Amino acid sequence: MASTTSGDVLPTGGRIFTTVPDIFFLPEFVFGGLVWILVASTLVTPPNPLGWVMFVSVFCFVGTTLWFFIFLCGGNQASIWPSLDVGFHFLAVVFYLSASVDLAYMTIITGQALPFFNLPENLKIYRLDIAAVVMSYVATLLYFLHAIFSAIRWKRS
């Protein structure tokens, strides 16, 4: 009977670019970074909900960067790493979903006030907010898929 060891559960080095859950690292970087950039480039009104969106996008971007380099350097070979992988990506899904809902709500509020303040810069900010909402939901989907496939890999280990 063959048994798996913790050394062959998670990929290291260049193999992370070919395994199913880990291939989502790069799109998570791109879309998470776009959320960060788009929200940072708009008028932050009111600051509290959009501050949460900024926190989530920066937290997940930095966390994904650290996670990526840990996987790339091979520091993920202990038996706890598959469950940590699932936990981190599940937390990212919950954070991004709450941030996406907040951002969508604030964008709707901005859109309802747009006819009263029909300035070209307000329309530009509104369009940037719409793009940020779309990118935020795409990032949520990517983190969700990564969490699901990581959970499947964790269950197999």
Rank of each mutant, 00 (worst) to 15 (best):
residue 68 F to G: 12
residue 64 T to W: 03
residue 112 Q to E: 14
residue 131 A to G: 00
residue 116 F to Y: 12
residue 119 L to E: 01
residue 109 I to Y: 06
residue 80 I to A: 14
residue 89 H to T: 06
residue 83 S to C: 14
residue 89 H to V: 04
residue 66 L to N: 01
residue 133 V to C: 02
residue 124 K to M: 05
residue 80 I to F: 12
residue 74 G to N: 09
residue 105 Y to E: 11
residue 125 I to Y: 05
residue 99 A to P: 05
residue 83 S to N: 14
residue 70 I to N: 03
residue 85 D to G: 12
residue 102 D to C: 06
residue 126 Y to G: 00
residue 81 W to H: 13
residue 94 V to M: 14
residue 68 F to D: 11
residue 135 M to W: 02
residue 106 M to Y: 07
residue 89 H to P: 03
residue 111 G to N: 04
residue 125 I to L: 01
residue 73 C to K: 11
residue 97 L to I: 07
residue 104 A to K: 04
residue 131 A to Q: 03
residue 122 N to K: 03
residue 68 F to W: 11
residue 129 D to A: 01
residue 113 A to L: 13
residue 111 G to Q: 00
residue 131 A to M: 07
residue 120 P to E: 03
residue 70 I to W: 01
residue 133 V to Y: 00
residue 116 F to V: 07
residue 127 R to S: 05
residue 134 V to S: 03
residue 106 M to E: 06
residue 69 F to C: 09
residue 67 W to F: 15
residue 96 Y to N: 15
residue 70 I to Q: 05
residue 104 A to I: 02
residue 98 S to P: 14
residue 91 L to R: 10
residue 126 Y to I: 01
residue 103 L to M: 09
residue 91 L to V: 14
residue 122 N to F: 01
residue 126 Y to L: 00
residue 108 I to C: 12
residue 76 N to A: 10
residue 115 P to W: 08
residue 118 N to P: 04
residue 126 Y to N: 02
residue 100 S to P: 12
residue 92 A to Y: 06
residue 75 G to A: 05
residue 84 L to E: 13
residue 107 T to I: 02
residue 128 L to R: 06
residue 95 F to A: 15
residue 97 L to Y: 08
residue 134 V to E: 01
residue 105 Y to R: 12
residue 99 A to E: 04
residue 119 L to Q: 01
residue 73 C to R: 10
residue 134 V to H: 05
residue 84 L to M: 14
residue 100 S to G: 15
residue 116 F to K: 12
residue 106 M to V: 07
residue 71 F to C: 12
residue 97 L to A: 13
residue 96 Y to F: 15
residue 133 V to Q: 02
residue 122 N to T: 01
